[in-house]
Structure formats: C-alpha cells, structure tokens
Computed example of a mutant assay.
Amino acid sequence: MSLKAKITEDMKAAMKSGEKDRLAVIRLIQAQIQQREVDERIELDDAQVLAALEKMQKQRRDSIEQFDKAGRTDLSTIERYEMGVIGAYLPAKLDEAELDAIIDAAIAESGATTARDMGKVVALIKEKAAGRADMASVAGKIKARLA
C-alpha cells in the first residue's frame, strides 16, 4: 500500500472513530500533497510524499520554537500534537552508527576527497536515508569528514 493510500485509509478510520483532532491533521497532510500535485502537475510517489511530510515537520519545529519564545504554550502544544501525527507516517530515524556507516559508504562509493565533492556524497545519501535523517546535520558531518 502506498503512503498516500495509507493516509487516505487513516483519514477514513479517524472519521469513523470520531477523532476530530487527528482527522484535522490528516486533512492538512492530504491538502499539502494535493497542492504539490496540482502545482507540479504530477502524481506524487512515496519519496515525494515523504519530502512533503518532512517539510511539514520542519515547519512545525520552527513554529514550536517561535511559540515557545513568545510564551504561547497553548499553540506550541497544538503544533507538537500535529508533529506526532505527521511523524507517524515518517520512517524511523537512523541512529548515529547507521548514519556514520551510510556516510562512509557514500564517500567511498563517490570517491570524494575534498569538500568540492560534497554534492556527490549528499546525492547518494539522500537516496539511502530519505526521510530517516536530518540532511542539514548530515551535510555538516560530511563536510567535517571531507575537510
């Protein structure tokens, strides 16, 4: 079952069980997916749906940070709940050892030796760790190893 189909099935289940808060978040997810499909005139595959979900997670993290700074814990609580629902559709995150192994393998596979080769390494890692690692921290690790 594709990720989009799972989201649709979960929406139906949330409707039947009366989970209004969860249903609202799932509808937000579907709206984001449909918006991308309309804008780009394509049918999103699982990797693209994961990218959309990651973007939504990042937006929520930024919002939580801003709400906490402003002392609006009521709004940050809502954002945390939304992150939890969205996070249920994302694959499990890689631990440090797995991530280090993937980075080492990508550096060896691409033959990268300097920071100028970083793009090749990042491209390989994106394939293997899509949705399972924060690419900003991965880029920092790659840069440190190639420096």
Rank of each mutant, 00 (worst) to 15 (best):
T113V: 15
I42E: 07
A108D: 15
L99I: 03
L99E: 14
T77C: 00
K55Y: 09
V85L: 02
V121K: 06
K20E: 04
D117F: 11
Q66W: 00
D21R: 12
L75Y: 11
M15D: 04
I125E: 09
E19S: 09
A101G: 09
G84I: 04
E127H: 05
R22I: 03
G84V: 04
A115S: 13
V85Y: 01
G71Y: 08
D100H: 04
A13D: 10
M135C: 07
K126M: 09
L44Y: 04
S110T: 15
V121N: 04
A70D: 14
R61S: 03
I64H: 02
G111Y: 10
K58A: 13
L94I: 10
A51Y: 01
G119V: 05
S110L: 04
R27W: 03
K141P: 10
T113E: 15
Y89L: 02
L28N: 14
M118F: 00
E54T: 05
E43R: 12
A129N: 09
A144Y: 08
Q32W: 01
A144F: 08
R41N: 15
I142P: 08
T77H: 11
K128T: 02
R72M: 11
L94G: 06
A129M: 12
G18W: 06
R145M: 11
Y81E: 06
V122I: 15
A139F: 02
M83G: 13
D68S: 03
R36P: 02
V49W: 01
E65P: 00
I29M: 15
T77G: 09
V138H: 09
Q30A: 06
A133Q: 10
M15V: 09
F67E: 13
